[in-house]
């Protein structure tokens, strides 16, 4: 029974992280591509397209962190010190971009400074999330119940590559979101920008996919050993489907399809990661059941999660519905 609960929780935490990645992904992506849109008017429309929802999107990150502490405290206690600097830099970056939403309206003199903060904050946060992910995939040195590695373990060529991949991926989510939510010139330029970004992202996903199995024998077995290879081969196949849907959508000027296809790429990459990791939470070192909190903790929070998560999804969906459609630069929301 205890084992079952911890696996349910692993699923919920994975869902929270995925929800964060896809939701805040396009938020951060808009910041990442800020330099390509120099007019203040354009940037206003771009930030307005996410202003009503960004708070909620970022809350998934708090659920990921807080939830990890609640149900996998040992994993939380090992991963956070291991990824000390990328986490701190991510948090500081999120501060800059979060306040920039409000601050850029509060001033004339310094608004370009906050726009810069929005760009750099979004970009560094994305980069650090990718680096943290890569460092986790590479593995973490553990002794007893503590992190036992050095302070620069997180920075390797592989983690740098995953960092760039997440940066590019979020940028793609950002421009496909703009392609969906804006019209006219901004939409046209976003769609144009989406093409090279798509190519880059697919190349990066390919490189990481090829590299990953050689980092750890466990991954190699998962992807090339029989019979797991049969199931895991679905991931690259579906990736190819999403990639062609993305390209098709961009070529034919579709609004929604490129965004959904880009989301699909993220979901599949995430699933691929899950295949590599399972049943570990820290690869090769700590399993899901070993990391789990006492059953009384898992049960107590699960009751709330089961009731509340559907409600959260419902009212979050409602908020998106209220602000549906294209952002009209001339429309008054008041």
């Amino acid at each position: 029974m205890a084992i079952d609960l911890s696996f349910i929780w692993a699923g919920i935490i994975a869902f929270a992280v995925l929800a964060y990645v896809v939701l805040d992904g396009f938020d951060l992506g808009i910041g990442i591509v800020f330099p390509f849109f120099r007019q203040r008017r354009d940037r206003d429309v771009m930030t307005n397209s996410i202003a009503p929802v960004w708070d909620g999107n970022e809350t998934w990150l708090v659920l990921g962190g807080g939830g990890l502490m609640a149900v996998f405290p040992l994993a939380y206690a090992i991963i956070m010190p291991a990824l000390y600097m990328p986490i701190i830099l991510m948090l500081v970056s999120l501060i800059f971009r979060g306040v920039a939403f409000e601050f850029r309206w509060r001033t004339h003199h310094e608004s370009h400074l906050w726009d810069f903060g929005f760009w750099i904050g979004s970009s560094v946060a994305a980069l650090m999330q990718g680096i943290a992910l890569g460092a986790l995939v590479q593995g973490i040195a553990v002794e007893g119940r503590r992190y036992a590695g050095g302070w620069w373990d997180w920075l390797t060529p592989f983690s740098a590559l995953t960092g760039v991949a997440v940066l590019v991926g979020y940028a793609l989510l950002g421009v496909t979101w703009l392609n969906l939510k804006t019209s006219g010139d901004i939409q046209a330029r976003s769609a144009k920008l989406a093409r090279p970004l798509s190519v880059c992202l697919l190349a990066l996903i390919g490189a990481i996919s090829v590299w990953t199995p050689f980092i750890n024998e466990m991954y190699f077995e998962r992807w090339f050993g029989w019979p797991t290879a049969f199931f895991s081969s679905f991931v690259p196949l579906l990736l190819a489907v999403c990639a062609s849907a993305l390209w098709h959508g961009l070529i034919h000027g579709k609004h929604l399809q490129p965004f959904l296809a880009a989301l699909g790429l993220f979901v599949l990459s995430f699933a691929g990661l899950g295949i590599s990791f399972y049943p570990y939470i820290i690869p090769g070192v700590l399993t899901i059941s070993d990391a789990a909190a006492p059953e009384s903790s898992l049960k107590f929070l699960l009751v709330g999660a089961v009731v509340l998560l559907p409600m959260i999804l419902a009212y979050t969906g409602y908020a998106y519905w209220v602000f549906r459609g294209k952002v009209d630069p001339e429309e008054g929301y008041h």
Partner: peptide
């Protein structure tokens, strides 16, 4: 952790969702 987990689930999402 679970106390803060409940804070996120019952409060943070509620605030952010309706803000």
């Amino acid at each position: 952790g679970p106390l803060m987990g409940y804070e996120v689930l019952t409060a943070f999402f509620l605030e952010a969702g309706f803000l």
